[in-house]
Amino acid sequence: MTDAIAAENITFAYDDRPVLQDVSLSVPEGDFLGLIGPNGSGKTTLMKIMLGLQSPDSGSVELFGKPPRRFREGTKLGYVSQQSSEADSRMPVTVRELVNMGRYAHAGLSRLSEADRAVVDDALERVGIADLAERQVNRLSGGQKQRAYIARALAAEAELLALDEPTVGIDADSEEQFYDLLDELNDEGITILLIEHDIGVVTERADSIACIDCELYEHCETREFLETDALERAFSTHALIRGDRVVHTD
């Protein structure tokens, strides 16, 4: 299996505060990788570096076999973050307009074609929000909003979905449905890279788990992972561990 993302010896610091130290991590195509670690452990930074949104101080990244500078198939990547931006809470944008953005990189400078619009319709249908297409994004519930962002990634025909704590502030039922949808997409071949604070969800859903706290503690299949003491080591200064659930104390 080839790697969707391969990061080698990544080191990154904000001024002189080290965030990542010599982290190497690869995500094979089709994998569902859960990235866990205490608050402030550099998970989000690592994800951004892996997607080419940020440059590491040292180390290298390959996206589908190419360094980020030369990787131009932006449509292959989908990204769903936890925070809603200022714009998505104030700007008048309908769900359809949001999902249309997934086609923009395909269309370049030309107008969206009928085929593009059909892909958007399919994506809306796929995540179950076709009936909300004309609603303003800031009128959606948290769960609906995250589905809309997934629909945008589907409209882009993304091959890799990166999600940064996507279910923060979402009720338990919607969260369950959301992860069912991710499972389905993963079964269809989409690579998933998930940052999630709820370790129970990660151990239940992910194929493999990477645990970081500045450095990489462990990266292996979920079943093996649970037999290691990586969680204990990573969280020892941050959290109490009860079974496979972690309760943050910071």
């Binding site: 714009a87 998505d88 700007m91 949001l98 400078l109």
Partner: peptide
């Protein structure tokens, strides 16, 4: 007329626009 799509994408979601290599 030529660049509306790129401008609106960046306005709404800078990070996703970067990711889409705009």
């Amino acid at each position: 007329a030529l660049t509306h799509k790129q401008l609106v994408f960046i306005t709404f979601d800078r990070e996703a626009a970067r990711l889409a290599r705009i």
